Simulated assay, not measured.
Amino acid sequence: MAALAGVWLALVMGFGGLRDHGDELAFAPRLPAALTRLTFSLRWRGCRLQVTVTGDTATYLLRDGTDDGGEVSLRHHGTPLHLRPGHPCRLPLPELPDTGPEPAAPPGRAPRRRTAGQPVTAVRTARGSAAEAASQPARSGPATPARG
Rank of each mutant, 00 (worst) to 15 (best):
L93G: 02
L81K: 04
G70F: 09
R124L: 12
R45W: 04
S73R: 15
D68N: 14
L25A: 01
V53A: 00
D68R: 09
T59Q: 07
A122M: 09
G100Q: 13
P106E: 04
P107N: 10
T36L: 13
P80Y: 02
A143D: 14
A105S: 08
P101Q: 08
H77A: 05
G117Q: 08
A28H: 01
A134N: 11
R84S: 12
C47A: 10
G100D: 05
P111V: 08
V53R: 00
R45M: 08
A134H: 15
L62Y: 01
S140C: 13
L61W: 07
E132G: 09
P85V: 10
A134L: 13
D56I: 10
V120H: 13
P32S: 03
W44I: 04
A143K: 13
R112C: 04
D98Q: 05
R114A: 03
Y60Q: 03
A122Y: 11
R127K: 08
P101S: 07
H82T: 14
H21N: 15
L49N: 00
P145Y: 09
V51N: 00
Y60W: 06
R30A: 10
D98R: 05
Q50W: 10
H82P: 08
R124Q: 03
W44L: 04
T36N: 14
E71L: 14
P94W: 07
L42D: 02
R48V: 04
V123S: 14
S140Y: 11
S73N: 15
G148F: 15
P119Y: 04
P111F: 13
L11I: 03
A105F: 11
Y60T: 01
A3F: 12
A130K: 11
G78E: 03
Q50E: 01
V72S: 00
R19N: 08
L42G: 01
D20N: 14
V120M: 15
R112S: 01
T36Q: 09
G70N: 07
R90M: 07
P94R: 06
G14S: 09
P106C: 06
R45V: 07
F27H: 00
